[in-house]
């Protein structure tokens, strides 16, 4: 299996706080990789290092390498715009932009230089169809995105991320704000996404990790405790901590 992302000796500090400790792992292409662990273990921070959104945090310090297709994204000359086009992200809380439904999706392609109206229209329709929102909103594309329900907003955000044709999709607990029905829909969506994208999903829900992912990494107190095929992690964990966590003894 060809790795899409290789993380080598990654360390992150928030001020004096060492939040990620010496993490090394390979994330395979066109598979779903789940990151699990108790809250505060550094899951979200880890995700943000993969598209350098962590740069937005004040007083952060990152050491180590993150290779995307063999190129270190922390190299000085790297083009952040290009990087984030390749590595899309979906957040815990749906965060639509204060624009219309249409503009939310079209914003990304526009930034990256798509100007043609028809191309934009087709991107919007295609992305909304992928997330199963098209039929609900096709008649009100000009409405504010805030008029959608929370679940719809989250699907809109996924569509928005897909609209820039990323190669990797990072998802930070994408279902934590949603009801069970919508959660199931999004899980199904993740399953279909892996045919075209490399998906990394952070979750605190172990059943979810089990259901959607091919590989699972267990983080604890900023350290990568165990990483392997999901099947193995859940049926036959090698580390006692992993076992305890999966059996619900802590977390």
């Amino acid at each position: 299996m060809k790795p899409k992302i290789e993380v080598e000796n990654l360390n992150v500090w928030y001020g004096a706080n060492h939040v990620l400790k010496d993490i090394s792992m390979e994330i395979p292409e066109k598979r779903v990789t789940a990151i699990i662990g108790p809250s505060g273990c550094g899951k979200s921070t880890f995700l943000m290092t993969l598209n350098r959104l962590i740069d937005l945090v004040n007083g952060v310090c990152v050491k180590g390498k993150v290779l995307l297709d063999g190129k270190n994204i922390y190299n000085p000359g790297i083009d952040l715009t290009e990087l984030r086009k390749k590595v899309g992200m979906v957040f815990q809380k749906p965060n639509p932009l204060p624009k219309s439904i249409y503009e939310n999706i079209a914003y990304g392609p526009k930034i990256h230089g798509v100007k043609d109206r028809k191309t934009l229209d087709s991107i919007v329709e295609k992305c909304l169809r992928v997330v199963g929102l098209w039929d609900d909103v096709k008649d009100r594309l000009r409405d504010s995105a805030f008029e959608l329900s929370v679940g719809q907003q989250q699907r809109l955000c996924i569509a928005r991320a897909l609209a820039v044709k990323p190669e990797v999709l990072l998802m930070d607990e994408p279902c934590s704000a949603l009801d069970p029905t919508t959660t199931r829909k999004i899980e199904e969506l993740i399953q279909t996404l892996k045919n075209d994208y490399t998906v990394v999903v952070v979750t605190h829900n172990m059943q979810q990790a089990n259901r959607v992912s091919n590989y699972t990494a267990f983080l604890y107190l900023g350290k990568l405790i165990e990483y392997g095929p999901t099947q193995e992690i859940f049926t036959n964990p090698k580390n006692k901590l992993t076992k305890d966590y999966i059996n619900g003894k802590f977390g």
Binding site: I54, C61, K63, G64, K65, N72
Partner: peptide, 8 residues
Amino acid sequence: MRLKCPKF
């Protein structure tokens, strides 16, 4: 390698 910390 260290992330460029903000300079004035």
